[in-house]
Simulated assay, not measured.
Amino acid sequence: MTTVDDAVAALRASNLIFLPTETVYGLGARACDSAAVAKVFAAKGRPQFNPLIVHVASAALAEHIAHFDDRARVLASAFWPGPLTLVLPIKDARLVCDLARAGLDSVALRVPAHPVALEILNGFGEGVVAPSANRSGRPSPTRLSDAVEETGAFVAASIDGGDCQIGLESTVVSLRDDARYLRAGAVTRADIEALIGPLKGDDHDGHRSPGRLAVHYAPDAKVEINVVKPDEGCAYLAFGPTDYAGPIFQLSASRNTSEAAANLFTYLRKADRLKPRKICVAPIPSEGLGEAINDRLKRAAGYVG
């Protein structure tokens, strides 16, 4: 069985690991090592202009890597460890290689809340890039078996941290100048604005966030969203009661967005394995966590934005 020590040793040897987090399973590599980071891009088939999030064990280490202002410290204090990524000006480029930052003068940082992730990060003592452990554009893995199915051939160490509690990638906020909301997640826009004031949109800094490709999180089958009555031959991701007679994957019978978020990628995968004519998804309200769910669904369906 793989241990935390095995994972730390693999990172130090410039190899890849699976990093279980509360959001999704990550494909981890040493952030300062361009050769190791290149292995992540190769495993995922990921475009190299898409930056990676660097996971660290503490806010103190994050401040060695990036320039923090008062807003960043307020948000880090409130939401770290947790599912919030901050995009900040790079301070020490030796700690995060140019490839991991996609050549940008900023870096995306997060302290995850999963106890196994924190054990590995504390043992390693450096930053670890850990994009979701799926092939690029595919649904993100929220359990170890899904990660193994996607990119298991590329990793030297994997630890089963159980099913991911949240199941959606982290919220991303840029604090380079104006505060901008780049990607929705479990930490909502309202949560952030309550602490640092209004957030601007992503029209200026969107390229600095992971997960911003137009087609992202996509299964092989075509995805159609906001469907109340699916056509025959479709797999249906329901949100609440439905009378559809075909294959149904119930995101949340009680219309709970937290439950739906945790189930989203797993059910997209299960639906896709049926090789349906298309995957239809029920309407989901955009309030709170629903904003993040709909963001992922729009990308899975091929919408821009």
Rank of each mutant, 00 (worst) to 15 (best):
C97G: 07
P230S: 10
A300E: 04
F68K: 05
H216G: 05
F239D: 02
H114C: 11
D69P: 11
V8C: 14
D70A: 15
V107L: 06
P131M: 04
P247K: 09
E63Y: 00
R212S: 12
L27T: 13
A117Q: 08
P283E: 02
G82P: 12
Y244C: 06
R296P: 00
A100R: 04
A102E: 05
R212E: 03
S170Q: 09
S77N: 15
L104N: 14
A36H: 06
G246H: 07
N15W: 12
A43C: 14
D205P: 05
P81N: 14
L121I: 05
L88A: 12
C32T: 03
V116S: 03
G305K: 11
A102P: 01
A59Q: 13
D203P: 00
F18S: 02
D203V: 06
H204E: 07
L199Y: 12
L104I: 00
S106H: 11
T23E: 02
A35W: 08
K222A: 14
V40K: 06
R110P: 00
D178I: 05
R296L: 01
V129A: 03
K39H: 13
H207F: 04
A78M: 10
D5E: 15
D191Y: 00
I279Y: 05
L109G: 07
A72L: 14
D92N: 15
A38E: 14
L118H: 10
S252H: 11
G201Q: 08
G290I: 02
L99W: 09
I120P: 09
D178L: 13
D33P: 06
D203L: 09
D33S: 13
L213W: 11
I166P: 02
T21V: 09
Q165I: 13
I159H: 06
A102K: 06
A62Y: 03
L213S: 12
G288L: 06
A113Y: 00
G127E: 01
P139Y: 01
G127M: 00
P210S: 02
V304K: 15
P230R: 11
G162H: 11
G28P: 12
P131E: 03
N134K: 11
V148G: 03
A214Y: 06
F79I: 11
L264I: 00
P47D: 08
N294P: 00
L88K: 12
L95S: 12
L11H: 15
K270G: 00
G125D: 09
V187I: 13
I293H: 01
V107Y: 04
